[in-house]
Computed example of a mutant assay.
Amino acid sequence: MKVAVIGGTGFVGLHITRQLLAEGHVPHLLVRPGSEHKVADPVACKLVRGEVRDLGALVECVRGCDAVIYLIGLLREFPARGITFEAMHYQGVVDTIAAAQENCVNRFILMSANGVRPDGTAYQRTKYRAEEALKGSGLKWTIFRPSVIFGDPEGRMEFCSQLKREIIDSPLPAPLFFSGLLPTQAGLFELAPVSVQDVARAFVLALSEPRTESQIYPLCGPERLSWKAILTTIAASCGRTKAMVPAPVLPIKLAAGLFDRFSWFPITRDQIQMLLEGNVCTGNDSFARFGLTPTRFGVEQLGYLRDSR
């Protein structure tokens, strides 16, 4: 099967491209000029140079394919540089849907995010609107909603590597965020980290499973872990312990309101809000429906953090 992958040079895209190749598929990758070195196997893949805002490149990438996988996702936006949730999460999906329709490619798989909703943050709203656009497109669609994704980033942006670099490696104590006045719930909000390899397997399995059409799959790891437990595990994977202190979010939000438009500021107001909301699956049977056993989040699974030192 020929599969157009939009976002194939990113963290998740790298692993999905490798899984596609392992299953005998031919990925067609949309690659920004200068990012050719990020391609998993440039000989085995067809490369189309261009950006998601380049409609001609999108059409060329999708042409002749049997399916499309859209993976582009931003952790934060920088409007002054044209990098926005609206452009990458929503408009990019709309334009890719149009390219698929123009080329009679009926199968479309979208990576959304766990917790998206129409009245959430800009990140959540644009992901939700992209889902709605796809559901109304007339294509045979499948939507995946992963929680936070971990795995060897190989030089790309990844959840645990970022926390190691910005919190565990810092000489300052790790912040246990809490809202309100009293720190009784500091650092106890829960996430369900999911392995990037498990996510890749689910995406590729969906290509050949008609029963996955018109379905939304939340993808969470097998455990609900507190922020404190996650930081402790990341530190332990590097052979360390880490001091932690309660951190009220109000002053952090005020600082973010002034500085989160700058890339050097480590967190945005929306990221703080989504973090405190938690990120777990209410129904956690998606992997079982694919016949997969999700990988647990533990010290052994985070060996890549030790190797990156």
Rank of each mutant, 00 (worst) to 15 (best):
residue 3 V to K: 02
residue 5 V to H: 06
residue 8 G to D: 09
residue 11 F to D: 09
residue 12 V to C: 04
residue 16 I to Y: 01
residue 21 L to F: 12
residue 25 H to F: 14
residue 26 V to S: 15
residue 28 H to S: 12
residue 30 L to G: 03
residue 31 V to E: 04
residue 33 P to G: 12
residue 34 G to L: 04
residue 36 E to Y: 05
residue 37 H to S: 15
residue 40 A to M: 03
residue 44 A to R: 13
residue 45 C to W: 01
residue 54 D to Q: 07
residue 55 L to V: 14
residue 56 G to D: 11
residue 57 A to K: 02
residue 60 E to N: 09
residue 64 G to H: 01
residue 65 C to L: 06
residue 66 D to L: 06
residue 69 I to C: 02
residue 70 Y to A: 01
residue 73 G to M: 12
residue 78 F to Y: 15
residue 79 P to N: 04
residue 80 A to M: 09
residue 83 I to C: 04
residue 85 F to Y: 15
residue 90 Y to E: 13
residue 91 Q to W: 04
residue 92 G to Q: 02
residue 93 V to K: 01
residue 93 V to S: 02
residue 94 V to D: 01
residue 97 I to S: 01
residue 98 A to H: 04
residue 99 A to D: 02
residue 103 N to P: 03
residue 103 N to S: 14
residue 104 C to S: 04
residue 107 R to G: 03
residue 109 I to N: 03
residue 110 L to A: 05
residue 110 L to E: 04
residue 110 L to D: 04
residue 112 S to E: 13
residue 113 A to K: 05
residue 115 G to F: 12
residue 116 V to L: 11
residue 118 P to L: 09
residue 120 G to H: 07
residue 122 A to W: 03
residue 124 Q to E: 15
residue 126 T to C: 05
residue 129 R to M: 02
residue 130 A to L: 03
residue 130 A to F: 00
residue 137 S to L: 06
residue 137 S to P: 05
residue 145 R to D: 10
residue 146 P to V: 10
residue 148 V to C: 08
residue 150 F to S: 09
residue 152 D to K: 14
residue 155 G to D: 13
residue 156 R to V: 13
residue 163 L to D: 07
residue 163 L to P: 00
residue 171 P to L: 13
residue 171 P to W: 15
residue 172 L to N: 13
residue 174 A to K: 12
residue 177 F to N: 07
residue 177 F to G: 08
residue 180 G to D: 13
residue 180 G to V: 08
residue 183 P to V: 08
residue 183 P to A: 11
residue 186 A to V: 09
residue 191 L to D: 06
residue 192 A to P: 06
residue 193 P to T: 10
residue 193 P to Q: 10
residue 197 Q to W: 12
residue 200 A to E: 05
residue 202 A to S: 05
residue 203 F to W: 06
residue 204 V to M: 02
residue 205 L to W: 00
residue 207 L to M: 00
residue 212 T to A: 07
residue 212 T to D: 05
residue 213 E to F: 02
residue 216 I to F: 09
residue 219 L to P: 01
residue 220 C to L: 08
residue 225 L to N: 07
residue 226 S to H: 11
residue 234 I to N: 12
residue 236 A to T: 07
residue 242 K to P: 12
residue 243 A to I: 11
residue 247 A to C: 15
residue 248 P to E: 11
residue 251 P to G: 12
residue 252 I to L: 15
residue 253 K to T: 09
residue 254 L to H: 10
residue 257 G to L: 12
residue 265 F to M: 07
residue 266 P to R: 01
residue 268 T to M: 04
residue 270 D to Y: 00
residue 270 D to L: 00
residue 274 M to V: 13
residue 275 L to K: 00
residue 277 E to K: 00
residue 278 G to T: 11
residue 279 N to P: 00
residue 281 C to Q: 05
residue 281 C to G: 05
residue 282 T to A: 12
residue 286 S to H: 00
residue 287 F to Q: 03
residue 292 L to R: 01
residue 293 T to I: 13
residue 296 R to L: 07
residue 304 Y to W: 10
residue 306 R to F: 08
residue 306 R to I: 00
residue 309 R to T: 07
residue 309 R to Q: 14
